[in-house]
Amino acid sequence: MNIFRLAGDMTHMFSVLVLLLKIHTIKSCAGVSVKTQELYAIVFATRYLDIFTSFVSIYNTFMKLVFLGSSFSIVWYMRYHKAVHRTYDREQDTFRHWFLVLSCLLLALLIHEKFTFLEVLWTFSLYLEAVAILPQLVLLQRTRNIDNLTGQYIFLLGGYRGLYILNWIYRYFTEPHFVHWITWITGLVQTLLYADFFYYYFLSWKNNKKLN
């Protein structure tokens, strides 16, 4: 565990808690894509399969429970909570995210490190996490503007990915044979998807005008 990894996990936890608190307190999910949240729920469900079979540390188990709990409750709020569901932008949130799930599954069946059930699902979750933000970014462009909490959510998510890349660079230089191509490539692709969002986020912050 290095400072980049810890900061990355904290930023990631903070991003999902910001979103959950926003939806819970103002009972609105305007501007939020439920498809991205569903993809994240699938990512965590297929990646944290070992949560009940092997115990590593309190930290590890606690963080997995936070990510699983927050992503599933955000989906529950947006799908089944009456007040919140009313504010869901169904017409605009039309990304066909099941195609993302299918293509990531096929890719995981083709490219993985070992052909075992856990390994394929774990690789699938890496591929899916890389593209999970797409429905949210498309919704962002469609609705032309973004309320600051959703902007902060995406900003923090991007920050978590950036810190993970720093964590991998740090580990590459400090641990002898730390090489994980699939993790690195998927992590890089995911971070690049945030690049243009960061650009506009920074511009709006610099010019102190609404992000659109």
């Binding site: 990894r5 996990d9 990646r47 070992d50 092997s54 590890n60 997995k64 856990l118 390994e119 774990w122």
Partner: peptide
């Protein structure tokens, strides 16, 4: 091994 990686990072 996968076990290690699954424990290693979130």
């Amino acid at each position: 091994p996968l076990q290690q990686r699954m424990h290693d990072e979130l």
